[in-house]
Design a protein around this nucleic acid. Structure first.
Lengths: 232, 232
DNA sequence: ACGGTAGGTATTGTTCAACAATCCTTCAAT
DNA sequence: ATTGAAGGATTGTTGAACAATACCTACCGT
């Protein structure tokens, strides 16, 4: 074994360590539940029974409750005192609130473009490229994740891990709204061209134009979702 | 009793309901601990012993741990696996991250001034007035809370409860940093005039000027804190 | 004196079981 | 139809038990 090998081994170990630390039972349970909620297997409004779920997942009620708390903080579940936890069911008011937040954060982040690191700037265009490639292969869920990645990349322009976290939560909550209104196929595709346009503006340092395009995006997407949820 | 009275009474009752629902033991414990941390009675870096604290507060370890989790999500405590929970001790990197987030959110919110409701707009000036009044009475902690309220009012221009929540967390975290560097007296007073200036710009719809004044504020405050924390 | 090792103590991680408090449903009475 | 009470189901909270880990200390060999 050469010393290079040894170094590699140590580095690999260090990478894995994050997974090891994350191995709390509650977090693994939370991962399972999160996937179920975001994939729509557990439907918005549905109650999560502690005993029943605990029996299925083979964990104690205490551990399960901790997982609930994690997801409650991510706004995927809501807790009603003495009643239990339910999958969040966003209504149109939530959408209005959410887009008010997105408008501020993402447009604010756009303004930080001149100060952003090159690597972060590049990630914006890469998300656009990924979306185009996915569309070329008619991989529509791929287009959806690329769209989300685009907006995360824009947020990352600000250079704040805390802001990135919050945006992650907001986008996850948005995904819940899709499930409420029956996840309209082709929702994300409409905005593919718009993302490309925004990215192009940015690379030319046309902040004003990028901001307006983004603002346009928010107006249309919000209206789309609000009208969709009004019908519920 | 007229029907108007009955309606008023019902409305008042509905307002109180929030307090009733909040009666979980863990949340009350969290409230106590939060106050202790934010007031500086529990110092940054200090460990919170489960058994000792549980005995003092007369709650079980399980309940106490739940309170810990709540405060960990608020970033007031940090959890180290198998070691316990400690009061967060922000360093200069945290400050950089925090101010990156504040720059985006607050300046982004500033841009929503034309769209904000009148009542929310008024709250901005009211926070300034409160600060001036407190300064007149040499109530320096009052000046501090007024300053915080000012920035919350600016954030509220966006009209998003989610954003308001996040800002509350960011400002609470910032307060921790003050305790780390020994809470320099007169920190907030310096920025009293600046707030007044920003508010004046806003009322005249001079968004550009308001933004620059705010940006200036962030630059100076960040530098102040970073240099202060570097010495630790 | 120094570094390392082994062992003991204290603390945290996790689960379980029990009981109290609360909610929801059902059903009967007016 | 509304109210009230009983009952069952679910959640809230606690205490205890044991495992896993970290921390401290005394000891040992060099």
């Amino acid at each position: 074994m050469t010393s290079v090998d040894a170094e590699d081994w140590l580095r690999a170990l260090a990478e894995e360590r994050g997974d090891i630390d994350r191995s709390s039972t509650a977090e693994r349970v939370a991962d399972k539940l999160r996937a179920g909620v975001l994939d729509g297997d557990i439907k918005p409004g549905q109650q999560l029974n502690e005993k029943a779920l605990g029996d299925v997942l083979r964990v104690s009620r205490n551990t399960l409750r901790e997982a609930f708390r994690l997801l409650t903080h991510e706004r995927l579940l809501v807790h009603e005192y003495s009643k239990g936890v339910f999958v969040r069911k966003p209504d149109w008011r939530d959408i209005v609130d959410l887009y008010a937040a997105r408008r501020v954060i993402e447009i604010g982040a756009l303004h930080r473009w001149p100060n952003a690191a090159d690597e972060v700037k590049r990630a914006v265009q890469e998300a656009v490229d990924l979306g185009l490639a996915s569309a070329g292969e008619k991989d529509w869920t791929g287009v959806g994740t690329a769209n989300i990645r685009f907006h995360q990349a824009v947020t990352a322009l600000a250079g704040s891990a805390r802001l990135d976290e919050e945006m992650k939560r907001l986008l996850a909550e948005l995904r819940l709204a899709f499930h409420v209104m029956g996840d309209p196929r082709g929702f994300h595709e409409d905005y593919l061209a718009l993302n490309q346009q925004i990215s192009a503006h940015l690379r030319r340092d046309e902040l004003r134009a990028a901001e307006e395009a983004m603002s346009d995006y928010f107006d249309r997407a919000e209206k789309h979702l609000v009208t969709g949820l009004r019908g519920e």
